[in-house]
Simulated scan of single mutants.
Amino acid sequence: MPADPTFFDFSALSREPDVDDDALLAYDATDELLLSTAAETLGSLGPGELVVIGDRHGALTLGAALGHGATGIRVHQDPLLGELALARNAERLGGARAYTNLPIGPELLAGARLVLVQLPRGLDALDEISAAIARWAAPDVVVLAGGRLKHMALAMNEVLRRSFGEVSAGLAVRKSRVLTASAPLTAREPGPLRFPLWGTDPDLPFALAAYGATFGGPTLDHGTRLMLRALGESARGRQARNIVDLGCGNGTIAVSLALSHPEASVHATDQSAAAVRAARETALAAGVEDRVSVHRADAADGVPAEWADLIALNPPFHTGATVHAGVAHRLIRAAAPALAPGGELWVVFNTHLGYRPLIERVIGPTRQVARDRTFTVVVATKRGARA
């Protein structure tokens, strides 16, 4: 398909295999604003000089490739479902050879002159991204970071100023805005890496690691704390030998269960690249890396059928910046084939979300084992007899 610098059909993009809903689109006004802001610069870039970070489903990458002729685009997407959606869209629309997915690091950023960023939800994620760009990109790199006004804060400018000498904000257009950063401060003296972050908690005998996009950072969230206490009181749960931590985040549950089940194998999965890196660091620091395998995966992909005696799940209640129960529903359904007959699915959730009927329908008989003012913990036993 020839490049057309004035047009890209965003409506042709799909979210698949990410959570789909009539209210959720594969692009937004920020994607369009970023590409229009970058249009003049995109035309002057050589192969490999454009990097895209945070592209949700391919709008920025394919818009730059098919609408502006960019080639050799290097892309980092923290969520695996974003990568898969970009790949499917690229295959359909003809941009599969225009880009390469890479982790945050020098391979992603070396020689980059323009970086397009969909602003992340958290300031730590933005801090890690901006520090990495300043450390490894070309000295004349320009960063265009865009977001929806309702999700932006003045603190984002200050985070960018930790790594760049010049930061400015553009005008709001259709409830989106682009921040521009240049003159990297660490181009000559990069200093120590700021990530991973580490945290401790009095209820845990190990430290927690987190990279910028790791949900919840290096902390023990309240729902997980409630679930761990309930698991510790469960005699049946202590008998588990094959354990899955579904959506492992910083590795709190996976490592806790590895320590309390010294004979067990723990399989931890998360679609977030930052979460997988953090969980591996947490397991290594706790000395259980030989029994905790951490994988970047879509839900329970990679877990053998009916392998798990116990699956623990603290599901997110958002997709991107949008609150949506579809993510949790997807994970609950994915747990069913991985769970052995008679095995247990433990789920903690905000009580008002009311996941219990779905859990009972998909897994089996369900009982409440803990509850406080905010969270409920239930355990469901998969229908069928243990072998």
Score class of each variant (00 low, 15 high):
278 A>Q: 01
338 A>S: 14
259 L>N: 07
336 A>P: 09
329 H>P: 05
332 I>V: 15
317 F>T: 07
273 A>R: 01
264 A>P: 01
285 A>P: 02
335 A>H: 08
271 Q>R: 13
340 A>F: 06
261 H>K: 11
317 F>L: 15
317 F>G: 01
273 A>Q: 08
291 R>A: 06
254 A>G: 03
311 I>P: 04
340 A>P: 05
287 G>F: 12
277 R>A: 15
272 S>D: 07
286 A>E: 05
342 G>R: 08
278 A>N: 01
250 N>S: 14
319 T>N: 12
278 A>L: 04
260 S>P: 02
323 V>P: 13
288 V>F: 04
291 R>C: 04
271 Q>T: 10
261 H>Q: 10
249 G>T: 03
261 H>P: 12
287 G>S: 13
303 V>W: 00
266 V>E: 03
268 A>H: 00
320 G>W: 01
341 P>F: 13
288 V>M: 10
324 H>S: 05
334 A>P: 03
257 L>V: 07
295 H>D: 08
320 G>A: 09
278 A>D: 04
250 N>H: 06
276 V>H: 02
332 I>S: 03
282 T>V: 06
306 E>C: 09
275 A>Q: 06
252 T>K: 02
271 Q>M: 13
278 A>S: 15
291 R>M: 06
311 I>W: 11
302 G>K: 11
255 V>A: 00
278 A>M: 03
325 A>P: 07
308 A>D: 07
311 I>F: 11
280 R>C: 05
256 S>A: 15
268 A>Q: 06
306 E>D: 15
272 S>F: 07
322 T>M: 13
339 L>T: 08
286 A>M: 09
282 T>Y: 01
294 V>A: 00
285 A>G: 09
324 H>E: 08
255 V>Q: 03
292 V>F: 07
311 I>S: 10
251 G>P: 00
312 A>S: 15
300 A>K: 05
294 V>I: 10
289 E>G: 15
276 V>T: 15
284 L>S: 14
269 T>C: 06
319 T>Q: 14
299 A>D: 11
249 G>L: 00
330 R>P: 07
